Measured scan of single mutants.
Amino acid sequence: NKEHILAQKEVLTPIEYEHYVKHLFDIGEITKELYIELSS
């Protein structure tokens, strides 16, 4: 869920976080809207 993803932002580097969010989007775990929101 969104809270879990945002928690990852605390422990990952910005680049790792971007890759993580992109991966979730690629596998269909999150919607495009959520992907855009989380990567901003």
Rank of each mutant, 00 (worst) to 15 (best):
H23S: 11
H23V: 04
I5V: 09
L24D: 00
K22F: 08
K9H: 05
E33I: 06
N1T: 11
I15K: 08
H4S: 14
N1W: 15
S40R: 10
E3Y: 04
I30M: 05
H19Y: 15
K9T: 03
E29R: 06
E10W: 02
Y20G: 01
D26E: 14
I27D: 11
I5M: 06
K9A: 07
L24M: 10
H23W: 11
A7F: 03
Q8D: 02
V11H: 11
K22V: 04
G28P: 00
E29N: 10
K2I: 10
Q8E: 06
L6Y: 04
H19S: 13
K2M: 12
E18H: 10
I15Y: 08
D26G: 06
Y35E: 02
E33T: 06
T31K: 05
V21K: 01
N1L: 13
L38Y: 04
S39L: 15
L24R: 01
I5N: 02
K22A: 07
H4G: 10
L6W: 04
E10I: 12
I27W: 10
E10P: 07
F25D: 01
K9E: 03
H19K: 14
S40Q: 13
L24E: 01
Y20E: 02
K2Q: 09
K22G: 06
I36D: 13
A7E: 09
A7H: 06
Y20Q: 02
L38W: 01
V21D: 00
G28R: 02
L6F: 05
Q8R: 09
T31L: 05
F25W: 13
L12E: 01
F25I: 02
H23K: 12
E10T: 13
T31Y: 03
E3S: 13
I36H: 15
G28S: 04
T13M: 06
L12F: 07
V21L: 12
L24P: 00
S40A: 14
K2R: 15
N1C: 09
D26T: 09
H23E: 15
V21T: 05
H19F: 10
K9V: 05
Y20F: 12
L38S: 01
I36W: 08
G28H: 06
L34N: 05
L24I: 04
N1Y: 14
S39H: 04
E10D: 14
I30P: 00
T13C: 04
P14S: 12
P14T: 15
Q8W: 05
T31N: 10
Y20M: 12
E10K: 11
F25Q: 03
L34P: 01
L6D: 03
Y17W: 11
N1F: 15
L34W: 07
E33R: 04
H4Y: 07
S40I: 12
L38E: 01
G28Q: 05
D26H: 09
G28L: 03
Y17I: 01
E18D: 10
V11I: 13
E3D: 13
A7L: 08
E16M: 05
E37F: 07
V21H: 00
Y35D: 00
D26K: 07
I30T: 01
Y20K: 02
V21A: 02
T31G: 12
A7Y: 03
E37A: 08
F25R: 04
H4I: 07
E29V: 12
L24F: 03
E37I: 05
K32T: 12
S39N: 13
E18T: 06
E37P: 00
E10M: 06
H19T: 11
K22N: 12
S39F: 06
K32P: 12
I5A: 04
K32V: 11
L6E: 08
L34D: 14
K9S: 06
L12Q: 06
T13K: 07
K2N: 07
L12T: 02
Q8T: 10
I27K: 13
E16K: 03
Y20S: 01
G28C: 05
K22Y: 07
E29D: 10
A7N: 10
A7K: 10
G28M: 05
E37T: 05
L34R: 04
L38N: 01
L24C: 02
E29M: 14
N1V: 06
E29K: 10
V11A: 15
I15M: 15
T13I: 04
K32D: 10
Y20L: 14
S39A: 14
P14N: 11
D26P: 00
Y20H: 05
E18W: 11
I30H: 00
L38T: 02
N1M: 14
H19N: 15
P14Y: 07
E3N: 13
Y20R: 02
I36T: 09
S39V: 09
T31S: 08
H4E: 04
D26W: 09
Y17L: 02
I30Q: 00
Y20W: 13
I5L: 07
I5W: 06
P14I: 12
E18A: 08
S39D: 06
L38C: 03
I5E: 01
T13A: 10
E18Y: 12
I36R: 07
S40K: 11
V11Q: 12
L38I: 12
Q8V: 12
I15T: 15
L38A: 03
N1H: 12
H4D: 13
S39P: 00
L34F: 08
E33Q: 10
Y35W: 12
L24Q: 04
H4P: 05
E37Q: 10
N1I: 15
L6T: 07
E33Y: 03
L34I: 07
E37H: 06
Q8K: 14
K2H: 06
K22R: 15
E3V: 08
I5R: 02
T13Q: 07
K32W: 13
K22S: 09
Y35Q: 03
E33G: 08
